[in-house]
Amino acid sequence: MEDYDIVCGARSDGRLTACDYITRMIPDFFELHGDRLYGDDRAVVAGVGTLKGMPVTVIGIEKGKTTEERIVHNFGSAHPEGYRKALRLMKQAEKFRRPVLCLVDTAGAFCGIDAEEHGQGRAIADSLAEMSALKTPVVSVILGEGGSGGALALSHADRIFMIEDAYFSVVSPESCANILWKDTARAAEAAEMLCLTAPKLQKLGLIDRVCPKNAPERLAADIAGELTVLSAMSDEALLEARYRRFRRIG
């Protein structure tokens, strides 16, 4: 399959969204709302529950399936309030020594006047810095779209998994083609060059595991396995390993 087909597939309807994975992996999920600063961004769905018998905090970027749902979830593009809600709940998870699971599926952080003026850049920057120091295990899974900074903000994890037909990219292939050749029609070429598929990113050492699609049960088992290993580590060892994980890139 061509890389650009993967990108298009990751954007298409009929995929399992973050909420699908949450209901199937965490049957007792209880949603928690709000960033305690300004609002409640529904692009981010977050809460607590048990994954394979293990209490976790789960944070997902949800796109929605029907038109109504998509509007409610802003098509899976988070505002700064969404990242601040995520951060609030991660700090809460740290307090109660609960592991954190992030489920990422976004074309990118929302681009708009409000988002900018409420500090989109600052919200992502905070997320990266705080996650790097979070004293509890973090696993992130790229479910479908891993769109640039908006996806990276929830991916500063001990382990990054990707569903086999997901993508994770610094820029959308269309924007890349537009910048390089002023021609969005050459997006397929750009997609090839950006090395954005799960197997390619694993080969580059940027992600840790490629997971089969449409298999929430299997994913839950894989995540639980990693969380068990990570939970056995001391805080110092965990943070040092997380630091090294990103330190070696480039």
Binding site: L128, L194, I249
Partner: peptide, 18 residues
């Protein structure tokens, strides 16, 4: 981030932030 280095450059944000 520098597009020509793909995800390697995006993840520099994580590295520097840490």
């Amino acid at each position: 981030a520098r597009m020509q280095e793909g995800m390697i450059s995006l993840m520099q944000m994580s590295k520097v932030s840490a």
